[in-house]
């Protein structure tokens, strides 16, 4: 009899792992809380650093053949309970399912920018998040709608909800710096006359070709980078946004009026992480994400044999890192289930 694998979350990690486990001959059930598969990637316009069309990449993952895979939509999993070599998975709506192994691919949630009240999101009209900007690029192919006219100065604020002790997230979300550079370029392409400023603490261009994108932003797009973290934003009578930062490299306070402010919101652990951890008896890390039993040697394995992790549920990752992680998780699941079958 084929072993049953449940994959919690049909984002790119879940889909990638599903297709591999499927090809290995396992029975796979994808459990998705939304009405469709794909997760966040469905909202992105272009991907860094090569500005690849996000829909193409999503299609590439979604269109992989899934012979023995069934998908449950609108099922938000709240608990995974180990029971007699099996796992009982329960969703919010009362749906219950049994599996021989579980792969958690619940991904991340975007930081709620309203929690950073001093930045004015949800208070001032012209403060938006990087995710909203992405949607605007994708749907409207422009941001004029939001402002009502062509913007002449836009600021991108790095590290919103990341590296911030005051909202309880000390970690770096890894993808926002390069996303900001990518979005700055896209904005500049839309509005060649517009001045674009990135307000950053540190520029973490750690991935391959990121630094090149940064250089390109300076060289070809004249994006300006100001090393200073935004303390607070205010709104003037015309609805423009006044920002105050310290130009730390010059050692002087800097005031700037912007037509629009884009907040680079970071990743946070998804809401159901805590309840899944407590029901399954697996560990939550200090940053709120799932904890692998050994992040070096067994990054996909939890403290409970049979429950595995892949993708951003175990910390911020890029799309390519997420996909690699999903593939390695599929191998870990396979080696667990075949060892079980031999016993």
């Amino acid at each position: 009899m084929n072993k049953q694998v449940a994959i919690i979350g049909a984002g790119i990690a879940g889909l990638e792992a599903a297709s591999i486990l499927d090809s290995m001959g396992f029975k796979v059930t994808l459990v998705e809380k939304a009405e469709h598969t794909g997760g966040h990637i469905q909202n992105w316009h272009q991907l860094f650093p090569d500005r690849r069309n996000a829909t193409e990449v999503a299609q590439g993952i979604i269109s992989k053949p899934l012979a023995n895979v069934s998908t449950e939509f609108n099922r938000e999993v709240t608990s995974i309970q180990p029971f007699a070599e099996k796992f009982i998975i329960s969703a919010k709506d009362g749906w219950v399912f049994n599996a021989d192994a579980v792969l958690i691919t619940t991904g991340f949630e975007l930081f709620d920018a309203k929690r950073k009240e001093e930045y004015g999101y949800g208070i001032y009209d012209h403060v938006i998040t990087s995710a909203e900007l992405e949607t605007l690029f994708k749907k409207e192919n422009g941001v004029t709608l939001r402002i009502g006219r062509t913007p002449s100065r836009i600021g991108l604020v790095h590290c919103v909800g990341s590296r911030d002790e005051k909202i309880g997230n000390i970690f770096c979300s890894k993808v926002c710096c390069v996303t900001a550079v990518k979005q700055a370029i896209e904005l500049k392409e839309l509005y060649p006359e517009c001045e674009i400023y990135c307000l950053y603490m540190d520029l973490r261009m750690s991935g391959r070709h990121y630094e090149e994108l940064y250089k390109q932003a300076q060289e070809e797009y004249s994006i300006q980078f100001i090393r200073g973290r935004l303390s607070e934003a205010a709104e003037d009578k015309s609805g423009k946004i006044i920002v105050k930062v310290e130009d730390t490299l010059l050692g002087r306070p800097l005031k700037m009026t912007m037509d629009m402010l884009v907040l680079m919101t970071g990743m946070v652990a998804s809401a159901q992480t805590a309840s899944i951890c407590s029901s399954a008896g697996i560990q939550k890390d200090s940053d709120g994400f799932f904890k692998a039993s050994d992040p070096h040697l067994y990054g996909n394995i939890t403290g409970i044999p049979g429950i595995f992790l892949a993708g951003t549920c175990s910390g911020p990752k890029t799309i390519s890192d997420t996909l690699s992680d999903a593939r390695s998780a599929a191998l870990a699941v396979q080696s667990y289930l075949s060892a079980e079958a031999n016993n």
Binding site: G228, R229, S231, E232, E246, T248, P253
Partner: peptide, 23 residues
């Protein structure tokens, strides 16, 4: 301290002087 300058940006005294806690 990572010298991000948030303190100096928000500082009430910095509006009137060259005070910078970061510095």
């Amino acid at each position: 301290c990572i010298s991000c300058g948030t303190c100096a940006a928000t500082c009430s005294a910095a509006k009137f002087s060259d005070f910078s806690l970061r510095k």
